[in-house]
């Protein structure tokens, strides 16, 4: 296979595979947060601000994959 084709495939695979785990993680954070809010609706404000930060952490893993994919694509 040519190098350019290989590069495109690798970039696509990187972000596709790298996106799986953070997606599952964000889903789990969200589901647990909803459960917690359901049990204690008064704490919704506190919980949701924590959730946004936790989701940002999980998202960061996907961003690492994206950075690697972009490096493969553009360098």
């Amino acid at each position: 296979m040519e190098e350019s084709v290989m590069k495109l495939l690798a970039a696509g695979a990187t972000i596709a595979i790298g996106g799986i785990a953070p997606a599952i993680g964000i889903g789990m954070i969200g589901s647990k947060a909803m459960e917690a809010i359901g049990r204690n609706p008064e704490a919704a404000g506190k919980i949701s601000s924590q959730v946004i930060i936790l989701v940002a952490f999980a998202e960061a893993i996907a961003i690492y994959a994206l950075v690697v994919a972009l490096i493969i694509k553009f360098i």
Binding site: E59, A60, I63, Y64, L66, V67, L70
Partner: peptide, 8 residues
């Protein structure tokens, strides 16, 4: 990398 990746 977290900050760079998100902004870029």
């Amino acid at each position: 990398f977290r900050l760079f990746g998100n902004v870029f």
